[in-house]
Design a protein around this nucleic acid. Sequence first.
DNA 1: GGTGGCACTCCACTCTAGTGAGTGCTGACG
DNA 2: CGTCAGCACTCACTAGAGTGGAGTGCCACC
Lengths: 357, 357
Amino acid sequence: MPNTEDHLLNRAKAPSIAGEVLDGRRAAVLNAVVTEYIETAQPVGSQHVADAPGVSVSSATVRSDMVALEHEGYLAQPHTSAGRIPTDKGYRYFVDHLRSPGSLGRVGRQQVREFFDHAHGEIEEMLKHTSGLLADLTDCTAMVVGPSHDGAAIRSVQLVGLGPRMALLVVVLADGAVQKCTIDLADDTDDDRLADASAQLAAHALGIPLAQVSLVVQPTGDAVTDMVTATSALALNRLGTVLDTDQLFVGGSSRLAEAFDAVDTVRSVLGILEQQLVVVTLLRDILDTGLSVAIGAEHGVEPLASCAIVVMPVSVDGAESGTIGLLGPTRMNYPLALAAARVVGDRLSERLGEVIR
Amino acid sequence: MPNTEDHLLNRAKAPSIAGEVLDGRRAAVLNAVVTEYIETAQPVGSQHVADAPGVSVSSATVRSDMVALEHEGYLAQPHTSAGRIPTDKGYRYFVDHLRSPGSLGRVGRQQVREFFDHAHGEIEEMLKHTSGLLADLTDCTAMVVGPSHDGAAIRSVQLVGLGPRMALLVVVLADGAVQKCTIDLADDTDDDRLADASAQLAAHALGIPLAQVSLVVQPTGDAVTDMVTATSALALNRLGTVLDTDQLFVGGSSRLAEAFDAVDTVRSVLGILEQQLVVVTLLRDILDTGLSVAIGAEHGVEPLASCAIVVMPVSVDGAESGTIGLLGPTRMNYPLALAAARVVGDRLSERLGEVIR
DNA sequence: GGTGGCACTCCACTCTAGTGAGTGCTGACG
DNA sequence: CGTCAGCACTCACTAGAGTGGAGTGCCACC
């Protein structure tokens, strides 16, 4: 088995401990393979690599490097006598050692600028459109997770009558979010009683995060008012306990269809995207492990094994208040995706900062 | 051309004016072809049709009927010596002459019951989950359009301070919808002034539909309050003019991936689904033309030419207040889809009726 | 160590039957 | 005259053989 010998030889020569650092030329070869494969989606042959800028050796030399890279797990061959394809580990190295930070290009920057110049008013609307923007910029599917309202204090509690026995509880949080809940009442009531109940709820709830609201209700003497207050307090409490799934906006899901040729891959990835909670926790998990890119099986979600995800936190005053995610095939354009996520994330942070304080 | 003669002969015999009514056996043959094709997605041969219940003639006879049906445009042949496939016209006849009303089956009904037993509080949340339910029931992509707030009167206008120069305008409508808009103020303000401004806005706006709010603002003597009022009035006006795109909830889009084998069909259909406005107006158009099913090219949207859409209005007290749509390939299970749309639509109408009045 | 050369591998493509489901036509029958 | 069995024909689909070419691994040489 000359291959094994060769392998050991290479390892001894370039002591890449756990594949951390690669010999300069090997790195260039790997880089060329990844770049080319991202572009063409075809297995890359040694000749193409030899022609690539940055590699100035013959194809024969490239071949021997490729053998080594394959043994170390950076490259794979669909079959003998085919070119090489990057493995997840190969992509990982590529991403970790990106030199140029990547650029959106003139058109992209212009697009971002225009977008944020015209964005206005409603936060949810803006986040939704942001997902569309990101998808346009990167040709990936984009996910935008809205700010979490966990810690936001209650700024206003109001009961609005909708009918004799129906009211709407409207809660405004300090970050500008509005939570609401329709309430069925056991008895007829009127605006005065609703106002009284609102006032009482407000007295106990203002300034406190929604999740920590306590239910102390003082009798007023009027049975109906007390009933309204009690029912509303219950509803308020439920608003707090309902795990306030952060809002998720998905844009450009149609781009998945052309990213993968296997129909069932598309199917299962779309299926995942429909599960809001899964996506949100997935993005959070990736951030929590300190990554900004998760490639292939690195995140645990099995149906996304052939995908890569780029994440970028959106933070205001240091506090994390949202997430941007880009989902594509493992051979996605990482530099572009990273650049887009960074730029849009920054602009989004600014914008949110103007509102949340 | 014996074919042509045969054709004319058949026409003379069974005078199907513009294909309106088919000879009984022909109808049975067409029915069998459609049913079988919906099930198998394979061209249907004369032998299969002859074996089908309801058709008690030999395959040869079926064949001659099929020729006639093909000439009249109900069936098509992918190529000579292949079985027949229904055309859009064929599906249309099938749908228009459905005998049995279609049933959800025991499991489906149970699912619907459980869903509406557990549905609670937040309307948007419920509509969103309804789209998921419909997708589960029918294996189609489901679209649910929320109630339009066009005519709903304003029940409450409130300004909530978020920062010294930032406030949130919260408008509650009679149907329980909440509209909001962040407002940048030119100068610092306080809660008292916001309350004053709120009161003034309320005085002019309560009871009026959002779209018809007028802007009469009376000076109070306090410059800051007036500024707040003016800015808010402007925002209120904008809320009314911004074409309040009815909310669209799409569920089960992943099912598109397995409905079509052509990747670019999936791609383009998903693309359409991303355009909220297009979908909403499409559903409305179909309803306006008096159809409950649009097959193939019947709706104008070209990328959806290989799709069929089942629509069902959701109405409360006679007033239309939402739409249900089911999107699938033209060979979707029409009886099931119609049944599901009807049942869920009815339950949804009831539910919305409890809230909106 | 790097390079050119060479034999080898194996996918992708084409071409060629062969197969079989399905059709259209025809002639006979009640 | 509608219905039906029989028959020749069509044509997508499949399998197998042959071929071209991109790509590899190895080796001798520089």
